[in-house]
Design a protein around this nucleic acid. Structure first.
Lengths: 217, 217
DNA sequence: TAGATTGTTAATCGATTAACAATC
DNA sequence: TAGATTGTTAATCGATTAACAATC
């Protein structure tokens, strides 16, 4: 066990760090130099004590009586998350969804560059999306290895999701973002994240039903 | 306080119900009739005791010694979530992302029908996506009111996100799904859900860094 | 220095899990 | 009936929050 690393970090902390980061980046753009946990709490809807506690998991970044230096904190959080350098993404699926993801500027701004796009449809192969030439899915192993890509994005039709996941994980990808509504299986060594709007909506719907109940009273 | 409803339901429960639902629907398609909490736990990666406890928040749906009748449970969960009837969605943004969302079959299967699409670009207005004619954003108030739409989806370029949110909430939408990386402000009466792949990726990245650390040892 | 705000401890809260009696 | 599995209680666990001494 290396000296600095220490104890296990709660998952909740890791989920809040990106939120802090995006607010901090906006504050920096707005010309702010320091920020207190109280102010950051307002902007993120997180309890200030929670923020201080979250940050001290990784060290002591603030100045008592002053607050946190924004630039320093941004760098620290980026380093903690591993977002202090560019990450290449392999995208499977060159349809509307794939095109939207490839062109999505928010990704690029945070250092996520889609550098390879694959599709199973021969008619798509050879076309360009944002200057990237679409390759055939058979090229996944070679390209992923050549570029050392660790993150894969699945944006294919649902019925092709599992095959895309298999091809990407076989090629050595470590993280998968699944944009389909299918539940895909991956080896235990791969981290899978599902971005299914249906789950999101169903869950939100519950609160809508309750709102409507209140209306009726 | 009405007799049946009773106590406050933990947010975690509401987040797990859609997961149970999607697995149950697949089991039903596969011809299964009943399911035990143990089996459902395997398929959803949720502790069986947790599942039983979650369900008893809403009543007692199982048979001791037998398990849960899948069809009954699906209906119950759908009713709890308010997913037992069709919901119309108003989509703002007719670009690649908007097109992908409008055509997304996973939504339709769960009763979410995109029935109105808006764009600010006059060249997009009048074109069709999946048989729905794109309207100008100025038509949002009239169409949302006419169709009684309660759910809005924001799929515009980041800089237009806040305006789209304002227009939709002004028109009476109760739930917003924000697909842009912008933090949009909404009235307290509106439920906002952000689907930002960057937050998702940043958070996943942390675990990737740790995996790579382990490799180095 | 006086005021402000962190870092940290201790108290609270809520969610998860284990265990088992009830019962199909 | 005997076996299985629920519904539910009690125990555990972890996360959140309040409070305050340390200190910039």
């Amino acid at each position: 066990m290396s000296a600095a690393q220490g104890k296990r970090i709660p998952a909740g902390v890791i989920e809040r760090l990106p939120l802090y980061l995006s607010v901090l980046v906006r504050l920096r753009q707005a010309g702010q130099v320091t920020v207190s946990s109280a102010r950051l709490g307002e902007l993120t809807d997180v309890n200030p004590a929670q923020i201080r506690r979250d940050l001290t998991q990784f060290g002591s970044f603030g100045k008592r009586g002053v607050g946190y230096d924004i630039t320093t904190l941004v760098e620290r959080i980026q380093r903690i998350l591993g977002a202090d350098h560019v990450h290449r993404l392999a995208l499977v699926g060159a349809g509307n969804l794939g095109s939207a993801i490839a062109s999505y500027d928010g990704l690029r701004q945070q250092g996520f560059h889609v550098t390879a796009i694959f599709d199973a449809d021969p008619r798509k192969v050879g076309t360009r999306i944002d200057d990237i030439v679409v390759q055939h899915v058979d090229d996944i192993p070679g390209t992923v290895a050549d570029q050392g890509i660790q993150i894969g994005v699945i944006a294919v039709p649902p019925e092709a999701a599992q095959e895309a996941a298999d091809r990407l994980t076989d090629a050595g990808v470590r993280i998968l973002l699944n944009y389909t509504p299918m539940i895909v299986g991956v080896p235990a060594t791969v981290t899978l994240h599902n971005t299914d709007p249906v789950h999101e909506l169903l869950h939100t719907l519950y609160y809508l039903s309750r709102l409507n109940e209140v209306d009726k009273v």
